[in-house]
């Protein structure tokens, strides 16, 4: 009876609405992750399904066989470690440049007259109307040794020999910054446009030059926007595959490419899966810490 009354007390409409995102996360995030995790612990085999089951039944015994070798290998092999570090480095650089370019961009958008803001926003969104791949290929055309940029520079007499731009750390970072910039601009703009302009006036009224007013008021208040933008750029950038493949070079290895190679060239699904698991952990752990800090700061009024 008790159970029945408890069932009656549940607000089913509310639970259904709240349940949808949870169901979504379980079906499309947690479940796939567990499958990947399972594969990462299994042994490779040359077959249509390129890995063995971790649970087998033979001679009346149920065997659970977890292979930790992939993880040990990842921890020991310098190639993987260096690639992880290099991925983090490029993701960090991308985030940094996106912040440096995106902040003034978002600020000028937020300070523009309201009637211009929609147009400016449109201009930021506009590139999304073209295929992502096409846009990255376009950079290839611009940066190759007889590409648009080099030809133009030679024609202007700035350089004699074409510069080696493509397939360098430079071209990789450039492509990533270009691709991810809007994801920095949106949350920043959203934050900055909501800031009360009278706070700046109050700061100036109290003797702050426009520059000081920015650093003491606008900037600290925009931290949550900057953080959101940085996460939106950093997380996908760590695992980015397409841009390193097209614009990256031998000295700009990224983990997304390694993962792809393990999966499709070596057909080593367990290895690829363990790389993926480590990648997810690298991204999620700092995220959880940041989130925790943000909640604490939110509680003390620094949202």
């Amino acid at each position: 009876m008790k159970f029945l009354t408890r069932l009656k007390n549940i607000d089913w409409g509310r639970s259904a609405v709240l349940g949808v995102p949870y169901l979504w996360l379980i079906l499309f995030l947690l479940l796939p992750f567990l499958i990947i995790f399972k594969i990462s612990m299994s042994e490779m085999q040359v077959s249509r399904i390129p890995f063995k089951d971790i649970i087998t039944y033979s001679d009346g015994a149920l065997n659970l066989r977890l292979k930790l070798g992939n993880y040990l290998f990842l921890a020991q092999d310098p190639l993987y470690i260096l690639t992880f570090i290099s991925s983090l480095k490029f993701a960090f650089l991308t985030t940094l440049f996106c912040l440096l370019i995106g902040y003034p961009f978002a600020l000028s958008m937020a300070r523009a007259k309201p009637e211009y803001r929609a147009t400016l926003m449109m201009l930021v969104i506009l590139p999304f109307w073209t295929s992502f791949l096409l846009r990255i290929y376009a950079w290839k055309a611009i940066l190759t040794s007889n590409g648009i940029l080099n030809n133009a520079l030679i024609a202007m007499g700035v350089i004699d020999e074409p510069l080696a731009l493509i397939n360098t750390p430079f071209s990789l970072t450039l492509g990533m910054v270009y691709a991810y910039l809007p994801f920095m601009i949106f949350p920043l703009y959203n934050n900055l446009v909501k800031q009360d302009p009278r706070l700046i006036e109050a700061a100036m009224d109290l003797g702050a030059t426009p520059w000081t007013a920015f650093w003491k008021v606008t900037f600290p208040l925009s931290m949550s926007g900057a953080l959101a933008g940085s996460l939106l750029v950093f997380i996908p950038a760590v695992g980015e595959f397409v841009i390193p493949e097209l614009l990256g070079g031998p000295d700009s290895l990224m983990i997304g490419r390694v993962l792809w190679d393990e999966m499709f060239s070596n057909n080593d699904w367990p290895m690829a899966a363990s790389v993926a698991v480590v990648l997810i952990l690298i991204v999620i752990v700092p995220l959880v810490i940041l989130n925790h800090q943000q909640e604490e700061r939110g509680a003390s009024g620094l949202a």
Binding site: R198, L199, E201, A202, A203, M204, D205, L206, V217, L221
Partner: peptide, 19 residues
């Protein structure tokens, strides 16, 4: 400019720095 005037203002609904 406002930051060089020996004048200070109390704003409508105060404009206190929230952070």
């Amino acid at each position: 400019p406002p930051y060089e005037r020996p004048i200070n203002m109390m704003f409508q609904s105060y404009a206190l720095f929230p952070h």
